[in-house]
């Protein structure tokens, strides 16, 4: 089966600092892939290029055969809203809205009715075990609850790809475990492919395979550092 998302020789430089130096990645339907490597190796930059948040300087990114890297922001943001889900380290929930309204937001922005959007939000909050948080504002939620609400918001549009950047980075280990278990369970149930960025081996272990970056390039040894050469 052909991959749904591909990166070919993707490069990105900030100023004079190369962040990505020719990365290839094939993401298949429903697959869960971890991207690992030490801080600053380019994990987040890769995720941003894959999800169309930024445009790479060189190389190509294709989603279901459509080229992403040279399309305009309007189209990329439409894709992000309808076919991709994004989960970051801190949920970035809208502080003034209730959890249910936060989850309903992507559907409302897509032009859905308020009633249908809130019903879908309630379903997702229930699936992720935070139904009781529905009417709370984010400030009243624990870290683990917030991340589950953010996960509900990322999944409510039934995305084809979920991009998660250090999704448990701010949680204690049991709360993080719960978020990862729920994330992988709902992704498998929905057939959503996942790219999860993490520096943590216990989180990467939820994926089916991993890609290790070293200084902006894929490290085939998986070690993330050159052995004994100082590179």
């Amino acid at each position: 089966m052909s991959p749904i998302l591909t990166a070919r020789d993707v490069t990105k430089t900030f100023g004079v600092q190369p962040a990505l130096r020719g990365v290839d990645l094939d993401l298949h339907e429903g697959e869960i892939v971890a991207v690992r490597g030490r801080s600053g190796c380019g994990k987040s930059t890769l995720l941003h290029c894959l999800s169309g948040i930024i445009r790479p300087d060189g190389g190509q990114v294709h989603f279901r055969g459509e080229r992403l890297d040279d399309t305009g922001e309007a189209h990329r943001s439409e894709l992000r809203r309808t076919r991709f889900g994004v989960l970051l380290q801190h949920g970035h929930l809208v502080a003034e809205l209730t959890a249910a309204e936060n989850v309903a937001l992507p559907l409302l922005l897509g032009g859905g009715s308020r009633r249908a959007a809130l019903a879908a939000a309630a379903t997702w909050l229930g699936r992720l075990g935070v139904a009781e948080a529905a009417e709370q504002i984010p400030g009243r939620l624990s870290g683990g609850q917030s991340q589950r609400v953010a996960l509900a918001r990322a999944m409510v549009t039934q995305p084809e790809v979920l991009f998660a950047d250090e999704p448990t980075g701010a949680l204690d280990s049991l709360a993080g475990e719960l978020v990862m278990q729920l994330l992988t369970r709902v992704a498998r149930e929905q057939g959503t492919a996942v790219v999860v960025v993490t520096h943590d081996a216990t989180i990467a272990a939820y994926a089916e395979r991993e890609l290790v970056l070293r200084d902006g390039a894929v490290d085939p040894t998986g070690l993330g550092v050159a052995v004994g050469t100082g590179a």
């Binding site: 475990e177 278990q181 081996a201 216990t202 990467a204 272990a205 998986g222 070690l223 050159a226 052995v227």
Partner: peptide
């Protein structure tokens, strides 16, 4: 050294994946 360390890390990672699957 790279060959051994890479294989060792791979073995650990594979086992961690199996155990993580059990936890679900």
């Amino acid at each position: 050294a790279t060959e051994y360390l890479s294989a060792q890390q791979q073995a650990h990672t594979t086992r961690m994946r199996e155990l993580t699957r059990l936890k679900s």
